[in-house]
Computed example of a mutant assay.
Amino acid sequence: MKLKEFIYVKVRLEIDAHKQLKAKAECEERSMNYLINRAVKLLLSQEGIKE
């Protein structure tokens, strides 16, 4: 089984985006990190970028 590798990245979010993301994470019982990773994967797939 292949282990996933991670890299730590700092980002800055606008206050309103942070509040909305935090609320969505709480509503979905997910972490903000999970939602950010999902959003990045969605953007990359829409742009046609492969892993």
Rank of each mutant, 00 (worst) to 15 (best):
residue 1 M to E: 08
residue 2 K to D: 11
residue 2 K to I: 09
residue 2 K to S: 12
residue 3 L to R: 09
residue 3 L to K: 10
residue 3 L to Q: 13
residue 3 L to V: 09
residue 4 K to L: 12
residue 4 K to R: 14
residue 5 E to M: 08
residue 5 E to N: 11
residue 6 F to V: 13
residue 7 I to A: 13
residue 8 Y to C: 04
residue 9 V to L: 13
residue 9 V to P: 00
residue 9 V to W: 04
residue 9 V to T: 07
residue 10 K to A: 08
residue 10 K to H: 01
residue 12 R to E: 08
residue 12 R to V: 05
residue 12 R to H: 02
residue 13 L to A: 01
residue 13 L to I: 03
residue 13 L to Y: 01
residue 14 E to A: 10
residue 15 I to V: 13
residue 15 I to G: 00
residue 15 I to A: 14
residue 15 I to T: 13
residue 15 I to L: 12
residue 16 D to V: 04
residue 18 H to R: 09
residue 18 H to P: 00
residue 18 H to G: 00
residue 19 K to T: 09
residue 20 Q to L: 08
residue 20 Q to M: 11
residue 20 Q to E: 13
residue 20 Q to S: 10
residue 20 Q to T: 10
residue 21 L to T: 03
residue 22 K to E: 11
residue 23 A to M: 07
residue 23 A to H: 11
residue 24 K to I: 07
residue 24 K to R: 11
residue 24 K to T: 06
residue 24 K to P: 00
residue 26 E to C: 01
residue 26 E to N: 10
residue 28 E to F: 05
residue 28 E to T: 02
residue 29 E to T: 04
residue 29 E to M: 09
residue 30 R to I: 04
residue 31 S to G: 06
residue 31 S to E: 05
residue 32 M to K: 04
residue 32 M to S: 01
residue 32 M to E: 02
residue 33 N to T: 14
residue 33 N to K: 03
residue 33 N to R: 05
residue 34 Y to S: 06
residue 35 L to N: 01
residue 35 L to E: 02
residue 35 L to P: 04
residue 36 I to W: 00
residue 36 I to C: 06
residue 37 N to D: 10
residue 37 N to K: 14
residue 39 A to C: 08
residue 40 V to C: 12
residue 41 K to L: 15
residue 41 K to P: 01
residue 45 S to F: 09
residue 46 Q to S: 11
residue 46 Q to T: 07
residue 47 E to G: 06
residue 47 E to I: 12
residue 47 E to Y: 12
residue 47 E to K: 10
residue 47 E to R: 12
residue 48 G to N: 11
residue 48 G to L: 14
residue 48 G to P: 10
residue 48 G to K: 09
residue 48 G to E: 12
residue 49 I to H: 12
residue 49 I to P: 06
residue 49 I to M: 14
residue 49 I to W: 11
residue 50 K to E: 15
residue 51 E to M: 14
residue 51 E to A: 14
